[in-house]
Amino acid sequence: MDIVKLVKKARKGNDEAFEQLIGTVREKLYRTAYSYVRNEQDALDIYQDTIYKAYTSLKTLKKPESFSSWITKMLVFKSIDFIRKDARYFTTDDEDIFTKIISSEDIESIAISMDLSEAFKFLDSKYKTVILLRYYHDLSIKEIASILNYPEGTVKSHLNRAKKELRPILKEGYMHE
């Protein structure tokens, strides 16, 4: 069913429509939260808080077609708030987020994902956020700028800097312009 129709139904109190909406973003939301906090339980807490907030504030969504970006923005900020409030410094260590993101059965793809995971550990968190939103959530520069409240030029700059940081770490051929 169309996202816009589901949003309209959910706004009218149709819980099944809301559940269908969440079903379209469930996996990406959890993985994004996990990429920030690196802990399954904390990621689930952030994910559930985000779902609740989305449920209670769905009427504030101005553009129903932007549901995915809207809820992702909530999740990113909840993740960042969690990190700040928890007073722990989270880095991108130990877990293979890209091994989970790239779920191809192809051995070559698995090797690539392992390289990406290793490289991802070295990225600054602001670059990690932009990379996740761009390449994992497939959001446009404009959507990322809106989510992060950055000018589009800043998003482009962060993407370019992230690519430059990743390039020497990754084997030749994985990063294409």
Rank of each mutant, 00 (worst) to 15 (best):
S79F: 04
S79P: 10
S79V: 06
I80V: 11
I80H: 04
I83W: 03
R84C: 06
R84M: 08
R84P: 03
D86G: 07
D86W: 04
D86K: 11
A87H: 11
R88E: 07
R88D: 02
Y89P: 04
F90G: 07
F90P: 08
F90T: 12
F90M: 11
T91S: 05
T91E: 02
T92M: 09
T92V: 05
T92Q: 14
D94T: 11
E95C: 00
E95T: 05
D96I: 01
D96V: 06
I97F: 12
I97E: 13
F98N: 11
F98K: 08
F98W: 15
T99Y: 04
I101D: 10
I101E: 15
I102N: 07
I102D: 10
I102T: 05
S103M: 11
S103L: 07
S104D: 12
S104N: 07
S104P: 06
S104W: 04
E105H: 09
D106H: 09
I107F: 14
I107Q: 13
E108Y: 10
E108W: 03
S109W: 10
S109E: 13
S109Q: 15
I110H: 11
A111P: 00
I112G: 07
I112N: 14
S113A: 15
S113F: 03
M114P: 01
M114A: 08
D115K: 12
D115V: 00
L116H: 04
L116C: 13
L116Y: 11
L116D: 02
S117G: 15
S117F: 10
E118T: 01
A119L: 05
A119Q: 07
F120E: 11
K121W: 08
K121V: 11
K121N: 13
L123Y: 00
L123Q: 01
D124W: 09
D124H: 12
K126P: 00
K126C: 01
Y127L: 15
K128Q: 15
K128E: 15
K128N: 13
K128T: 15
K128Y: 12
T129A: 13
T129V: 14
V130C: 02
I131D: 00
I131S: 00
I131F: 07
L132C: 04
L132Q: 06
L133E: 02
L133V: 01
Y135W: 15
Y136D: 11
Y136P: 00
Y136K: 12
Y136R: 13
H137N: 11
D138K: 15
L139T: 03
L139M: 15
L139R: 14
S140I: 02
K142G: 08
K142N: 13
K142A: 14
E143P: 03
A145V: 05
A145H: 06
S146I: 01
S146N: 10
S146Y: 06
I147M: 10
L148P: 12
Y150A: 01
Y150F: 14
Y150V: 05
E152W: 02
E152G: 03
E152D: 14
G153C: 02
G153V: 03
K156T: 04
K156G: 02
K156N: 03
S157I: 00
S157L: 01
S157K: 00
H158L: 13
H158E: 06
L159Y: 00
N160Q: 04
R161T: 08
R161W: 04
R161E: 05
